[in-house]
Amino acid sequence: DEFHFHWNGRDIRVRGDSEELRRLIEAIKRGELSEEEIERAIEILER
């Protein structure tokens, strides 16, 4: 699976399928994380 979302003017695409990944992306979409937490998560996910 590939998750695709927009954040902070960026087009983010992440491959993978796990419950943890889904929860993280939902939290990002709901605005539950700080900008710094989101940046760090995206860096890890894009590897």
Rank of each mutant, 00 (worst) to 15 (best):
D1R: 03
D1I: 12
D1E: 15
D1V: 13
E2Q: 07
E2I: 11
E2M: 09
F3Q: 03
F3I: 10
F3R: 03
F3C: 03
F3H: 05
F3M: 08
F3D: 04
H4Y: 13
H4V: 15
H4W: 12
H4N: 09
H4D: 07
H4T: 14
F5W: 06
F5E: 00
F5C: 02
F5S: 00
F5K: 00
F5L: 06
F5A: 00
F5P: 00
F5Q: 00
H6I: 14
H6K: 10
H6F: 08
H6D: 04
H6Y: 08
W7H: 05
W7E: 00
W7C: 01
W7V: 04
W7G: 00
W7Y: 11
N8W: 02
N8L: 05
N8Q: 11
N8G: 08
N8P: 00
G9K: 01
G9M: 01
G9Y: 01
R10K: 11
R10A: 04
R10G: 02
R10Y: 04
R10D: 02
R10C: 04
D11W: 12
D11Q: 05
D11G: 02
D11N: 06
D11M: 10
D11V: 15
D11T: 14
I12Q: 00
I12N: 00
I12D: 00
I12F: 14
I12H: 04
I12Y: 15
I12A: 00
I12C: 01
R13K: 15
R13F: 15
R13S: 15
R13T: 15
R13M: 15
R13Q: 13
V14N: 01
V14C: 02
V14T: 03
R15N: 15
R15K: 15
R15E: 14
R15T: 15
R15M: 12
G16Q: 07
G16R: 04
G16T: 09
G16F: 05
G16C: 03
G16V: 13
G16H: 06
G16E: 08
G16A: 12
D17A: 07
D17W: 08
D17Q: 06
D17M: 04
S18W: 06
S18T: 15
S18C: 15
S18I: 08
S18A: 06
E19T: 10
E19S: 09
E19R: 07
E19I: 12
E19F: 07
E19K: 09
E19V: 13
E20Q: 11
E20R: 04
E20K: 07
E20N: 08
E20H: 08
E20I: 10
E20A: 11
E20T: 08
L21Y: 08
L21N: 15
L21M: 12
L21S: 14
L21K: 15
L21V: 13
L21G: 10
R22C: 05
R22L: 13
R22S: 09
R22W: 14
R22A: 11
R22F: 13
R22N: 09
R23S: 13
R23W: 12
R23V: 13
R23K: 13
R23N: 14
L24P: 00
L24R: 00
L24E: 01
L24C: 02
L24G: 00
L24I: 10
L24T: 04
L24Y: 04
L24S: 01
I25G: 03
I25V: 14
I25E: 05
I25M: 08
I25H: 03
E26R: 12
E26F: 10
E26V: 10
E26P: 01
E26A: 10
E26W: 11
E26T: 11
E26S: 12
A27G: 09
A27V: 08
A27S: 13
A27M: 13
A27R: 11
A27E: 10
A27F: 08
I28M: 06
I28W: 05
I28V: 05
I28C: 02
I28D: 00
I28H: 03
K29D: 09
K29Y: 11
K29R: 12
K29Q: 13
K29N: 12
K29L: 14
K29W: 09
K29S: 11
K29M: 10
K29G: 10
K29V: 15
K29T: 13
R30D: 11
R30H: 14
R30Y: 11
R30T: 14
G31D: 09
G31M: 06
G31L: 04
G31H: 09
G31N: 13
G31Q: 07
G31S: 04
G31R: 03
G31W: 05
E32N: 11
E32Q: 11
E32H: 11
E32P: 02
E32V: 10
E32D: 13
E32Y: 10
E32K: 07
L33R: 01
L33F: 08
S34M: 08
S34A: 09
E35I: 10
E35P: 14
E35F: 13
E35K: 11
E35T: 11
E35Y: 12
E35G: 10
E36V: 11
E36S: 12
E36Y: 09
E36F: 09
E36P: 10
E36W: 11
E37R: 02
E37I: 02
E37A: 10
E37H: 04
I38Q: 03
I38P: 00
I38A: 04
I38Y: 03
I38D: 00
I38K: 02
I38C: 02
I38T: 10
I38L: 09
E39I: 07
E39W: 06
E39S: 08
E39D: 12
E39T: 10
E39F: 06
R40K: 14
R40A: 14
R40W: 10
R40P: 02
R40T: 11
R40I: 12
R40L: 13
A41P: 00
A41S: 06
A41V: 11
A41W: 14
A41C: 01
A41K: 06
I42T: 01
I42C: 01
I42G: 00
I42D: 00
I42N: 01
I42M: 06
E43F: 04
E43S: 07
E43P: 03
E43G: 04
E43R: 05
E43I: 06
E43L: 07
E43C: 07
I44K: 09
I44R: 07
I44M: 09
I44H: 09
I44A: 08
I44Q: 08
I44L: 11
I44E: 14
L45Y: 06
L45V: 04
L45W: 07
L45A: 02
E46W: 04
E46C: 02
E46D: 10
E46K: 03
E46M: 13
E46Q: 06
E46Y: 05
E46N: 07
E46F: 06
R47K: 15
R47E: 15
R47N: 15
R47V: 15
R47A: 15
R47Y: 14
R47G: 15
R47Q: 15
